[in-house]
């Protein structure tokens, strides 16, 4: 395939069958390989869409500074686009994120402001909102509340999935900003009667949930519960186990959040088998494993990997 530039090559990622992980010939799993995007993650889609929308409405102009709270992938996508388009990018990133993510951000020219590990992404959002108030000239795209995030998936990821898998019965993805699930979920619900939209939410260590009080909890502005049909919480042990199975059985080297998504997809598959139903379950491989090698998730026993991930933002 030929494209005019890297940015133009966004999307149209492969959907691959998983013959060995699928529970049966009637209950099939399909992986959408979003690591095939320009910077290697699904976040290229919302990042570019948010930038283009801000350019179109005049919020972003030549030389603007973009500010964004991110645990990595969205920042990396924005950094690549910002470099090509001539914007300055400042990422607010929790300090308990992998070193690879920081190196990549710096390579693409982003500046990083660290937020405290305790509280995870909640703190990054809080710090970024504070900075945005202090610097009204900075443009915070704010992926947790920017409709362009979900729109990117409604307009591209959803239609690609339906084109490649018209028989789709279930869609499973990770829950972070909720943009993927909201966008793809809305699109598929409009086109496929009875389709199930399932969220896999990473369950981190205690450090991340250590709020001062419950009112500091956070639900992304984009989140609309009515788009989902179920939502599973997946801990690091199951996520690592499935990440390794995906590599072992199907050869796919994915990031740890994909293991969490696969865990939920396999649970759905088992239920379909038990009910004697056929199913075509598509899920998102959000990124490859490269950025997480230093977390220690890919070596040693599951117990060791689980211990090493304690306190880290692994998804």
């Amino acid at each position: 395939m030929r494209y005019e530039s890297l940015l133009a090559s966004l999307g149209h990622t492969p959907l691959v069958g998983l013959p060995r992980l699928s529970p049966s010939p009637e209950v099939r799993l399909w992986a959408k390989l979003e690591d095939h995007n320009p910077t290697g993650s699904v976040k290229d889609r919302p990042a570019l869409r948010m930038i283009e929308a801000a350019e179109a409405d005049g919020t972003l102009q030549a030389g603007s500074t973009i500010l964004e709270p991110t645990s990595g992938n969205t920042g990396i996508s924005l950094a690549m686009a910002a470099k090509l388009k001539g914007y300055r990018l400042i990422c607010v990133m929790p300090e308990n994120t992998s070193e690879e993510r920081r190196q990549l951000l710096r390579m693409w020219g982003a500046e990083i402001i660290s937020s405290p590990a305790a509280g995870g992404s909640n703190e990054a959002v809080r710090v970024a909102k504070g900075l945005a108030a202090e610097h009204p000239d900075w443009v915070m795209l704010y992926q947790y509340g920017n409709p362009s995030n979900a729109a990117a998936h409604y307009e591209t990821t959803g239609p690609e999935l339906l084109e490649d898998l018209p028989e789709i019965t279930h869609f499973v993805a990770g829950l972070g900003t909720t943009g993927t699930l909201m966008g793809v979920g809305r699109y598929l619900r409009e086109k496929v009667p009875g389709v199930q939209i399932i969220a896999a939410e990473p369950r981190y260590g205690e450090l991340v949930y250590g709020l001062r009080n419950l009112d500091e909890g956070f639900v992304p502005e984009l989140y609309d519960e009515s788009v989902l049909t179920s939502r599973f919480s997946v801990g690091p042990r199951d996520a690592v186990k499935r990440t390794r199975e995906l590599l072992e059985l199907e050869g796919i080297f994915a990031g740890i959040s994909t293991g969490a998504v696969l865990h939920a997809a396999l649970g759905i598959g088992r239920k379909a088998m038990a009910a004697g139903a056929s199913a075509d379950i598509a899920f998102i491989v959000a990124d490859g494993g490269w950025k997480y090698l230093s977390t220690g998730a890919y070596e040693g026993t599951l117990d060791e990997a689980e211990d090493r991930l304690e306190g880290q933002l692994w998804a």
């Binding site: 976040k43 709270p69 991110t70 645990s71 990595g72 992938n73 969205t74 509280g119 995870g120 992404s121 909640n122 990054a124 959002v125 992926q143 947790y144 990770g174 829950l175 972070g176 900003t177 909720t178 939410e201 990473p202 369950r203 981190y204 991340v208 949930y209 709020l211 419950l214 500091e216 909890g217 956070f218 639900v219 992304p220 919480s233 959040s257 933002l313 692994w314 998804a315």
Partner: peptide, 11 residues
């Protein structure tokens, strides 16, 4: 049964 505060996910 697991009780957890709602927090921002990775992104």
């Amino acid at each position: 049964v697991t009780v957890l505060p709602a927090v921002a996910g990775g992104a």
